[in-house]
Design a protein around this nucleic acid. Structure first.
Lengths: 378, 378
DNA sequence: CGCCCATGCTCAATCGTTAGAGCACTTCGA
DNA sequence: TCGAAGTGCTCTAACGATTGAGCATGGGCG
């Protein structure tokens, strides 16, 4: 068509360079014929096998680099009996219950670990619950992934225990008390919720507090609720508390706030189990003409980046989702490599992030309060 | 060596159940020995080959279902010469420039298409730019993915054209005017920006407007800026406009707003090139005691879910990121299947979302304004 | 001089799947 | 009654990487 080609790039197809960008993938055989040895020798040289001579290894590695050799993952996986990629499984139920930001942060963490391990990352969500055989089920059984990280919602999700039972390396994100043998990584929601509750009680002297929880069949929601109650119980003076059950959505936060306000007179503070419900609560408070924090204090949980955008900026508990993903992936690679380890459940610390939604904090706290233990044996 | 050959099935590892949950993966051979035919026949039966009898097909399919057979993707990929999975590539530069919500929405769309095509989804981000060979480069060259969807930031990203040149099926997300031969899917940012600008000019009668753009070497930022100017140019009365260049971050929005306010007296409106910068601008306006929308109007772009949480709720332009992902994946599967198609660039419509940040809109518009063309031939 | 061993490679087989060639058997038309 | 065509399957050979077995060669030692 055009009389002049790109430049420097000669006619692509035919005699071709030996560099990289060409069409046909480079195989061991290509390297073998360049170096003048057998494909087996090339394989062994690249694996640094002791029975291959120094000179041959050098020649092979040079040729591999020049040809731009990348091992065909299918061939390798077939021979090895397992793939190199790992999968992240997000059941659709989880997608709805948690928000998108959580998974994105998680993914970023998992990705960086996968990159460090030279490993691909498969992402699978369940298309619809009517499907008897879930998408991830197929992925795992087709040996596409060497292991899986599962971020599930319901603590009694049958799919989770089924997955754990397959014997495939699996790391769960979250806390699974009824699957004590499973490897899992989570945060100490109990401690985080207790910390933010204590902030309300101890730092601000509030005594009449309502909690908007998530669905209590979800471990996360339950832990946050129980952390809330535990913190109140340890309080010297009596504290009045009340509960509204939501589903982590903004709308549920709005409804929950309405329920709390109607149910308890002179409510002084609301602790929403996640930031999104806190926003909903904020809207409800505002529509009733209540000012935050002057008339009522408000705190959330998660801190996935938007909490600082509201007015007032929301005091909340930071969940280190990215670290969570990183850790989960690291644990998974350990499992895949057969590094057992005693620890089944790892807990990452949460951090209380004080902003404006409780008012000026009278007690000048030094460092940010970090809560949470690090490990538990199973 | 062994006196007896394979035959039907001598005691394998476990005498055990034949259902699914066990350890060893089910292969074609397992089905073959159950049904009493050769593995080839099983393969052909499952592929509905015409030369296989009805009875055999039924028997094979029944056995496959009962054993829970799932084809080993490595074996299949090796034989076929290409994988079934597709990759989503997110260069790290893009990750920083756009926000996380954009990619999550994109991913959701891509996932649903991949699920519909019974295909895995690989996610790859570039670990660090110092790496000469990028992670996605390896993924693609190792034949792990049959094709890739690339969401890049800079319009002149060398990696993008390199990827397109490999001959591997690739779909770009965004607009790439200098790569007209590449298949791409994007939104009509020019039209979207023009629509929201017209909203300010025509519906609200504002005449002194500032724009906070993204980095102008990014096609998206450029298109939005030019749409803004085009809308002003078509206005009958003269409109004063000014520009501050940002980087799509909240902080840049704050700085940009300050620059605009200092640079033009009696500024009536600010159009930020994305919602995050609009938040930043909002903070700056508020800190100067300017009320939105009473003293100054503010609009954003993207509408990835949080725009409605601010006060006032932000008028913005909705970018259908999920549809974008869905479409991109569909186009990619077409490419992989050899379905060529004349169209190289597909544009999805954007939608003006009117909320509170411009004040009551005097002109009672009927339906939401949808802008954008659908296709262009290359 | 003969043996052993270390070194450095090649050979062949294997992973699971699939396409094409080929082989038995049946049916049909001439 | 015989070939031709059709039907239904089996056999074989790949795809690319890996690995244990095996085969040369050469040096050291008795």
């Amino acid at each position: 068509m055009s009389p002049v080609k790109r430049l420097s790039t000669p006619p692509k197809q035919p005699p071709s360079k030996s560099t990289a960008a060409g069409r046909a993938p480079v195989t061991l055989r290509d390297i073998a014929s360049v170096v003048g040895v057998s494909p087996s020798a090339v394989s062994m040289a690249l694996a640094d096998h002791p029975r291959i001579g120094r000179a041959t290894k050098d020649a092979v590695r040079t040729a591999a680099r020049e040809l731009g050799y990348v091992a065909n993952s299918a061939g390798r996986a077939l021979r090895a009996g397992r793939a190199t990629a790992v999968a992240v499984v997000v059941p659709n139920t989880a997608q709805h219950v948690f928000g998108h930001p959580y998974f994105m942060h998680l993914l970023v963490g998992v990705t960086s670990s996968a990159n460090a391990h030279d490993s691909g990352l498969l992402v699978s969500t369940n298309p619809d619950q009517s499907h008897e055989v879930a998408a991830y089920d197929r992925i795992l059984r087709s040996q596409t992934a060497a292991g899986a990280i599962i971020a599930s919602a319901a603590s009694n999700d049958a799919n989770v225990s089924r997955m754990v039972d397959t014997g495939l390396p699996v790391v769960l994100v979250g806390r699974y008390p009824h699957l004590p043998q499973a490897v899992s990584v989570g945060v100490d929601d109990h401690a985080g919720a207790a910390a933010v509750t204590r902030h309300l009680v101890a730092d601000h002297g509030l005594r009449r507090i309502g909690h908007i929880s998530g669905p209590l069949e979800h471990q996360t929601a339950l832990d946050r609720y129980e952390g809330f109650r535990a913190a109140l119980a340890e309080c010297a003076e009596p504290c009045a508390h009340t509960l509204a059950i939501g589903d982590f959505s903004e709308e549920a936060g709005r409804a929950g706030a309405a329920q709390l306000l109607d149910g308890m007179s002179d409510l002084q503070a609301i602790f929403a189990a996640n930031d999104e419900m806190a926003y909903g609560a904020l809207l409800e408070l505002r529509s009733r003409g209540l000012r935050v924090p002057q008339d009522i204090a408000l705190v959330g949980y998660d801190d996935f980046g938007v909490s600082r955008l509201t007015s007032p900026a929301l005091t909340t508990v930071r969940v280190p989702a990215e670290q969570l993903g990183l850790h989960a992936a690291d644990r998974l690679f350990d499992l895949i490599d057969g590094v057992a380890g005693e620890v089944t459940h790892t807990e990452l610390p949460t951090e209380l992030v004080v902003r404006e939604s409780c008012g000026e904090h009278p007690a000048p706290t030094a460092a940010p309060t970090v809560t949470g233990t690090t490990a538990a044996t199973g």
